[in-house]
Design a binder for these strands. Structure first.
Length: 486
RNA sequence: GCUGCUAUAGUGUAGUCCGGCCAAUCAUGCGGGCCUUUCACGCCCGCGACUGGGGUUCGAAUCCCCAUAGCAGCACCA
């Protein structure tokens, strides 16, 4: 029966065609290993993946760890885990810190070609010259001199900031960002967690080197890289290499969560967040913990596409995608928040059998024995309520003496409840409950749930009339669940 | 300030290249109804947008200009 359901969603928009994709594509996802992946990374990761799947080819994970200041040793593993969770078709992984000799060699070649030079000017001074479209003295030095200085850089004869390799561009370029931008720098501190080095390539150089060497044909990334694309063009031209096809999608604003890795780290250190998977964060692991399916993330990203308009990401749209995936599989249970004990006079023992899933009766039922007392959600028992129906059980009449209610058996007839417009609410037998804490992004909800929820550890269930939740921990003493969405 | 990119309903998105078939698509959201022993799912109905102003044209969401707004870059970050 779910086949027909999913067919309806097959009209999902496909991504626009990429030019030069006839013989397959080689694409890459290139994160900086400073922390785990978040929803912002997911866009680039998923979009590239989708194109590789569409056209066939290779999908390279390239860890860009050429700035030791922004490397968290634990992030290498986290990135791989997060990508695996997302279900991407990564075919190979390279780590830039393993490839420093490759970049050094290419740098020498580039200097020999006159495409780069070593600059020993003071940083501030160079910037002033650049604004004036003026060359610094180093620019005119002979190639031999630059090669000599480059060797000195490698030999660590310069201190941090003492020398920089610059790409020769066009000083008259109207965009100051294009003028003789740096390609290598010297860094004495901090030490790189993976290699011993003091000369590091800057992103624009290592990216071009790797994109070319690895055969990358198409690059899809955010438009914050547009300037880098133009800068990188100079390097391609110096080497005489062919440029990949670029697409730059617009900025994606995300409401309500902190996405800055440094802020998240600070918050974790300060105890504001419980960890990288704190459900108030926008990391993949936080989404996973809340019961968001990786396919929902994928579908939401594909729906957004590669448009170059700035957009604001909507959680509602993600939740809708997730609901499509989770609703057919999640078993139903009762969770009674803020429970109040109620004894129902004059009611005989009853056995309630509630479907685990209303759309799939083959899954069977759960059994709740009524023995006289139940727990009801406090919010449902408000003065004036004359009758409620306990779902799958019977009707309950409520008589009010001022603010004080008294409860009595109101018959089994569903029709009576309907005609009395009684609400059909969730409940639990007082003698068979399990404490349950439902954690939402807004805070904790204490309550009780069916003991059988214990068997759903790590699964997403639906607490009827409350919403979907992922069972995060469960034992004989209680359940901890994370609220997914309504 | 300089350089560049973008502008369709609350949100996302199609249409824009090659003007008419667009009194503008689809999803989500919201409102109403049906179904239903969940406020879920499903079904039906409805709400809601071409940033503004000029111009070109028989005709403009689509082409041109100006304005406005947003975003990005101008780092020895990625």
């Amino acid at each position: 029966m779910y086949a027909s359901l999913s067919e309806k969603h097959e009209h999902r928009k496909v991504l626009p065609d990429l030019e030069k994709s006839g013989n397959g594509v080689v694409m890459r996802f290139a994160p900086n290993p400073s922390g785990p992946l978040h929803i912002g990374h997911a866009r680039a990761a998923v979009l590239n993946d989708a194109y590789v799947k569409q056209y066939g080819g290779r999908y390279i994970l390239r860890i860009e760890d050429t700035d030791p200041k922004r490397v968290d040793p634990e992030a290498y593993g986290m990135v791989v885990e997060d990508l695996r969770w997302l279900g991407l078709g990564i075919t190979e992984t390279v780590t830039q810190s393993d490839r420093l000799p490759v970049y050094y060699d290419l740098c020498r070649q580039l200097i020999e070609r006159g495409g780069a030079y070593v600059c020993t000017c003071d940083n501030e001074h160079f910037r002033d010259l650049k604004q004036e479209k003026t060359a610094c003295p180093c620019r005119a030095q002979p190639v031999e001199k630059s090669l000599e200085l480059w060797q000195k850089m490698l030999d660590h004869e310069f201190r941090e900031g003492g020398a920089t390799v610059r790409i020769r561009t066009d000083l008259s370029n109207p965009d100051p960002a294009m003028r003789d931008f740096p390609a290598f720098r010297i860094l004495d501190q901090p030490p790189h967690p993976k290699v011993k080095a003091h000369v590091y390539p800057l992103m624009n150089f290592s990216v071009v080197a790797d994109d070319h060497l690895l055969g990358v044909t198409h690059v899809i990334r955010g438009k914050d890289h547009i300037a880098n694309t133009r800068r990188q063009q100079y390097i391609y031209d110096h080497f005489g290499w062919q440029v990949p096809v670029y697409r730059h999608y617009g900025r994606m604003g995300i409401e309500g969560v902190v996405l800055s890795t440094s802020q998240m780290r600070l918050g974790i250190k300060a105890g504001t967040y419980t960890g990288w998977d704190d459900i108030r964060l926008g990391t993949m692991r936080a989404l996973a913990r809340r019961g968001i399916s990786p396919d929902a993330v994928r579908n939401a990203m594909l729906a957004i596409g590669i448009g170059d308009t700035d957009i604001s990401f909507s959680w509602d749209n993600l939740y809708a995608e997730n609901r499509k995936i989770v609703d057919p599989v999640a078993n139903r249970y009762f969770f009674v928040p803020d429970p109040i004990p109620v004894t129902i006079g004059s009611a005989a023992r009853h056995t309630a059998r509630a479907l685990l899933h209303p759309g799939d009766t083959a899954r069977g039922t759960r059994t709740l024995e009524f023995e006289g007392s139940v727990l009801l959600p406090k919010s449902e028992i408000v003065p004036g309520t004359a009758m409620v129906r306990l779902k799958d059980l019977f009707n309950v009449k409520i008589a009010w003496d001022g603010e004080t209610p008294s409860f009595s058996y109101g018959g089994d007839s569903l029709a009576d409840a309907r005609s009395a417009k009684a609400r059909i609410i969730q409940w639990l037998p007082a003698q068979a409950t399990l404490p349950c804490t439902l954690l939402t992004q807004e805070g904790e909800m204490k309550g009780v749930c069916e003991p059988q929820v214990r068997t759903e550890l790590k699964n997403v269930v639906q607490f009827e009339r409350v919403g979907f939740a992922r069972i995060d921990a469960a034992d004989a003493f209680g359940v901890r669940a994370y609220f997914t969405h309504k």
